[in-house]
Design a protein around this nucleic acid. Structure first.
Lengths: 345, 345
DNA sequence: TATATTATTGCAACCGATTGTAATTTTTAA
DNA sequence: TTAAAAATTACAATCGGTTGCAATAATATA
């Protein structure tokens, strides 16, 4: 039942030419006569030939595979990025192996090892929130396998990074809240060892500074952004203590949506009591009541950008200057969760 | 700079034994003396040896890779399933290649071809919504490569399928609305050539029947569940025509959330005017106002189940009875979007 | 001590494609 | 018509493990 696999030797035998010629013919090598190529392709199609990637990889020491390690797949942002990467990379003849770290350094290390053993030609990484040690990427560097970090990056390794301007985004979000009359703006974000959160925080602080508002430690919370964490943060630290801020800037839309729900559950009005701004422009930010003001995060564009850089590098002559810092632009998307002043006042 | 790759021949030479013994030693072959094994492992670690999967795959004609094709990654349900699959499959020493069809048959076909050429040991598929032709799976069948369909399945190929009881789920959702006093229940779902939507529709119809409510064609809409489609469906067909239903059962939570937002935007009260039930128990169903009653879809469990079946098959003696139909249980999760009667009435 | 068992290890072919170099054929130039 | 140049094609080694079978070493049995 199991059909025998067709090899270039089978094709060669049937065509009375050498396997070499078949191999070159299939690769459209210029040295092969066009008529011969046609005969090869025709027979290959007829016999249902498929190239054996392992033999090819083994010989060429290249896999045409790119590994991706991300914290999680389940956000609109992440799947947009992946979508962008996949499209570009596929067109260039590469495959993707995708894995999730589930925000854990240990899983990220395991994934990296797997990618390494699978001999990916390049690695694309968005770091897990608690990754502090980067030694799992050393093997790639040693073998000159390019790594690109995006979104959650690090300066600890000087690879290429692709990010948005998180500082600006944090600034815009905060300034918007200030413009809307907020003076006590709570900022809830992730592990500030991560660039994205650190930079947003810097933007937040700068906006406060520029508007003569003092930064207050008690208006800054760093947690894992889970529903439970948001609940604890808002209920225990804010609501029960009657330290009601008048603005809330949360570092992602899911967490912002949790926050919104929790605050409403506590009887607060959004945006009248507390104006809320999220981050990412995930679907979820548009279906809450009120919909959430957020930062647009151009995932697709980011993905395509990443792919292009890698492909140019891999298909080019591998020039080693693969450590540029690419910063994409972002915008603020204003929705009802933060509008407290008429624009035509 | 580029470090030379260490092979079993390097190890063999250093240990003064044959490559054969090294190979067997690394595989923990019983014929190899335990002391020899230790020497091999120690040296391997010291020299930074890594197995070359291509050479191994080439020789063994097996890749230890499992392919996954899904419509999209960006739903809590899908990423739960993948998470479940990945965990189990990783433990058993397999890798995953994941790709998205973006709900398009053409992309699904391309993905399938890629998987085939990458010689995955098995394929896991949730069909794109418009896949009507299944010939892209034929090559797998011919080569006895197992395929498991989950969620979006087909009976056109007799492979193993893993699904939830969509009929029951549809029934429960509908009956719940009826219990809440709804009599004109609009059902919006996807392409009913797909089992999931067809079965939910059957459940919907049966529930109506059991409660002496006639099925009305005008209370059934099949579309692509996008925001635009929901908008068109609700605005054009329902609201403008003043055919106000009193219940709405939407086949996934994102679409239900869109619907909720659109209806509220049109001035309708949920659940007083229209009670709403979604499907999947995605995060989004919990943050709308009101939160949406939905069907719990145990993604993780489904993923682990799929992985177990495959691994048992692959690691076992490949007994060919790989065409069972597995149906997982589901529940209704009641939230405010559908509660119109006090439970203690 | 001789012989039979059992435990270890190694030889050599093989998986299927790729590629430097050489050989052959075809085309062009003299 | 013949030598030189260009176009095609083929030989054979190579990539790095894997595995059937033979060979050798160690241990047990008579």
């Amino acid at each position: 039942m199991q059909e025998k696999e067709v090899t270039i030797y089978d094709l060669a035998e049937r065509l009375n030419i050498s396997a070499t010629t078949v191999s070159r013919g299939l690769q459209d090598h210029p040295a092969i006569n066009i008529k011969t190529k046609k005969r090869i392709f025709d027979l290959a199609a007829e016999m249902g030939y498929r190239s054996n990637k392992f033999a090819s990889n083994l010989r060429r020491q290249k896999t045409n595979t790119i590994g991706v390690i991300v914290p999680r797949l389940n956000s609109l942002f992440m799947s947009s990025v992946l979508s962008g990467i996949e499209r570009s990379v596929n067109n260039a003849g590469y495959n993707l192996i995708i894995s999730q770290s589930f925000e854990k350094e240990s899983k990220e290390k395991t994934n990296a090892k797997t990618m390494f053993n699978n001999r990916v030609d390049a690695l694309i990484v968005s770091l897990s929130s608690d990754t502090a040690d980067f030694s799992h990427f050393d093997p790639f560097l040693k073998k000159n396998i390019p790594i690109i970090f995006f979104d959650r990056t690090t300066e600890a390794m000087n690879s290429t990074t692709v990010v948005i301007d998180n500082f600006k985004a944090g600034y815009l979000a905060t300034e918007h809240l200030i413009t809307q009359g907020c003076r006590e703006i709570l900022h809830i974000t992730g592990n500030i060892d991560r660039n994205v959160y650190a930079d947003r925080l810097k933007g937040y602080k700068k906006a406060l500074l520029d508007h003569q508002i003092d930064f207050r430690e008690d208006l800054f919370i760093s947690n894992d952004l889970s529903e439970g964490a948001m609940h604890d943060a808002l209920i225990a630290h804010v609501i029960k203590r009657k330290q009601l801020p008048d603005g809330l800037f949360v570092t992602n839309d899911s967490a912002a949506a949790f926050a919104l729900t929790i605050l409403k559950g506590a009887g607060l009005r959004i945006p009248e009591d507390i104006a809320v701004v999220g981050f990412n422009n995930d679907l979820i930010s548009r279906v809450t009541e009120p919909p959430i003001t957020t930062i647009n995060y151009p995932g697709n564009e980011m993905g395509e950008r990443i792919a292009r850089i890698l492909i140019d590098h891999l298909d080019g002559d591998g020039n080693p200057d693969l450590n540029s810092q690419i910063v994409l632009n972002t915008d603020l998307i204003i929705r009802a969760s933060s509008i407290r002043k008429k624009t035509y006042e």
